[in-house]
Amino acid sequence: MEFVSPEGLRLDGRRPMEMRQIRAEIGAVAKADGSAVFEMGNTKVIAAVYGPREVQNRTQQINDQALVRCEYSMANFSTGDRMRKPKGDRRSTEISLVIRQTMEACILTHLMPRSQIDIFVQVLQADGGTRSACINAATLALADAGIPMRDLVTSCSSGYLNSTPLLDLNYVEDSAGGPDVTVGFLPKVDKVTLLQMDSKLPIDIFENVMQLAIEGCKAIANYIREIMLENTKQLEYRRGI
């Protein structure tokens, strides 16, 4: 199948190095301590953060740092065909783990010993790149909850189809069977915190594809900063300062 037309356009009309439209909103869940919606094209996820609070299960308490927990779930209506899978299948468990490890690496957990931070991500619509969208939403939600972090971790995926590196794969491109590189990146300290790839890729091309994903992460980081600045301005305005 042809994923990049001779004119250099992808199936959804994007250029190879073009990202889908991204949109973010802070404070979607009124009752949570911090929350955000993050959209990448048709992929739409909600993240909610509860905490830092008392550890619910005493046996899990850590004496010198905070306990970070994460649960990823997909709504029944999120995929094209209606899902009848129960909660907690292997894929969700794996993504929960990935998100937890990525977020744990950037939260300053040693500042909140003997406490617990819960991150819940809910996929409303899945169209490829849910993993990245979830990490971006979780970052915004954690920032909204006022949890101290080293940096704003952002994530983006890239792939390689028809001998062209492609940024931000959608569902059709993702299921084409080509390589899919997901990168989590700390833009300020310039470090990669998450790197996953399936399928196979020559090393010299891998470098290009990964660099492309990192560029995507940087673009998302800029956008997230804008959104947070806007949100802070709103808060300031409401307080009448």
């Binding site: 949570a32 509860y50 779930s73 819960d118 819940f120 809910q122």
Partner: peptide, 16 residues
């Protein structure tokens, strides 16, 4: 009709 309580609504909805 099927209702699902998302964990985002309350931490007590975690797991089952």
């Amino acid at each position: 009709i099927h209702v699902d309580c998302s964990t985002t609504a309350a931490p007590m909805f975690e797991g089952r």
